[in-house]
Write a protein that binds this DNA or RNA. Structure first.
Lengths: 249, 249
DNA sequence: TCATGCATCTCGGGA
DNA sequence: TCCCGAGGTGCATGA
């Protein structure tokens, strides 16, 4: 069996056959079609006639892409269940149970259907995340300041979860809020919430926002609230790369 | 010219020809291939060999989908520029200028290429948004409480933008923070930030979180901070549907 | 399941 | 352009 089967301008019956076969063989189904779309669930939407690419994945994920933007115009998340109904026109129906959501695609004209028996055992290896900023801080606490001692990672407190909890050289409790990208007002509010929570039970608590940069508004609020900022880039290049880099010196 | 052109098992030269023709004709390009992926930009990633669906849109959007999940495993946003390089293997290269980001897809084997001359003039019509909650509140302020008078929508204050600013029957300033779905800790922090900002300049300020429900933690923090909650569902069915519904009674 | 917070978030609106 | 906040956010993680 070839990796990709395809059929141009299929009849309604062929559409049903191909879709059903894709579903039962857990293949990745792609349909190039002129269609209308109806969604009802957490919200509700309608999309008039137009040419779109429709993808149905074996895990139930359902994507409808227009010819612009990164985001699908309509979709259904993994776990949804799809089937075809032959009404006046063939209709793709995808149903999600919790929360209840329904997506219907009226196929006015199907230009091409493909059934892709995709094999993929690889997972993405990504570096430059907030998690790696935390690892860096635990390995080299001096990137925050001399004498800083990180104690907890992802520490639950009364109203939220603190990124890094530690003490400074004076013994003060220090809360770190890490952001892998430019920190905004939201990040400051988050840090403030943790600091206020901890201040209730302990004496002085310092709050430090750790990020590559700050928005203007974040800087203003941070200063007003007596919180601090430490500039830090998320490290790109995980353990392997760091090992390589070390060998260069 | 047909809506969809396609070529199974193309040679490297044919791949380059088809990709270039899709780009120059502003068509939607889809490639079913066994490939490796390298990304470097805001973060950095690698993805080993596997079967994926690659979509390149005429606006520069670039998507790589595995056979699971709603999200692309790698991508490039609109405005990126793509081209093909014929190295040992054909490579799709997509470059974004600001911030600088590069995505490279090494095409180890191409099963099928499609070039879709998609025409689509429709836009999604969605109902059930936060914006519609605000409209409802301005049309029927009593859904908040008797005597409430909404005055401003999306009102910029010192540290952020308030959803709805109004006054109650006693003349107190009232801040509303609207959420179309269950409100969480973040929503409470946001409301608290606005209330504190306004309290600095005015006397008493009430803060009301308006949402269909609250998380457990949000309820606790809300009560501790002396903020209020008003239950409200986002209205589904815009002006038309509301008209229909009225006619039913 | 729910709660919490990250994300190469994306996207739109406003200054 | 930056800033700010919504989103049918999706998604992983932990309780």
């Amino acid at each position: 069996m070839p990796k990709v089967e395809f059929r141009a301008n299929p009849s309604p019956e062929e559409i049903k056959l191909l879709v059903d076969s894709a579903i039962s063989s857990e293949a990745l189904l792609t349909i190039f079609a002129h269609c209308r779309v109806y969604y009802d669930g957490r919200a509700k939407s309608e999309l008039g006639s137009g040419d779109r690419v429709i993808i149905v994945k074996p895990d139930g994920s359902f994507l409808i892409h227009q010819s612009k933007k990164r985001e699908p115009v309509n979709w259904q998340p993994p776990g949804s269940v799809v089937h075809v109904e032959l009404r006046e026109k063939p209709v793709l129906v995808s149903v999600r149970r919790k929360p209840p959501e329904t997506l219907e695609v009226e196929l006015e004209e199907v230009y091409l259907i493909t059934v892709f028996h995709a094999e993929d055992y690889e997972e993405l290896a990504l570096t430059g995340s907030e998690a790696e900023m935390a690892e860096l801080i635990f390995e080299q606490p001096e990137v925050i300041e001399p004498g800083f001692k990180p104690l907890y990672r992802e520490k639950p407190v009364k109203h939220g979860i603190v990124d890094v909890l530690g003490v400074d050289s004076q013994g003060n409790i220090v809360v770190l809020e890490l952001k892998r990208r430019r920190a905004d007002l939201h990040a400051v509010s988050q840090l403030k919430r943790y600091v206020e929570t901890l201040k209730e039970e302990h004496g002085n608590v310092r709050g430090i926002l750790v990020a590559p940069s700050l928005t203007s508004g974040a800087r203003k609020l941070l200063e007003k609230e007596g919180l601090e900022f430490r500039k830090l880039q998320p490290p790109k290049g995980g353990k392997k790369s760091r090992g390589k880099q070390l060998r260069l010196f």
